[in-house]
Amino acid sequence: MVRVLLNAPKQVPKGQPFNVKLLISHPMESGQRRDAMGMAIPRHIINQIVCKLDEEEVFRMNLFPAIAANPFLVFSATAEQSGTLTITFTDDNGVEQTETTPVEVV
């Protein structure tokens, strides 16, 4: 489990785009670096993020080692009805983690 900040407005107007901010605490080890002994440090990054509002997809993102440590993302979504915004991300070890935040349409 890693620390995640998922920040969406508590209330959003129906059908209007709103911004969501996501910050994941993760080293995003690029696989390009070597340790003090000269051994390559294995790659360990978050390679996919999927965001859904209830069952409908907001975005799907493939990440590469060129994404900076502690991936930060600002994206836009729209809601027609109140629901739950879900972020699911997968790292190189196959570990999956999910974060949710409620979105209320006014």
């Binding site: 965001c51 859904k52 997809e57 907001v58 994404i67 994206f75």
Partner: peptide, 12 residues
């Protein structure tokens, strides 16, 4: 996806 808003993304 279908629930995306504005076509704009920010990252680092």
């Amino acid at each position: 996806g279908p629930r995306a808003g504005l076509p704009r993304v920010q990252t680092r």
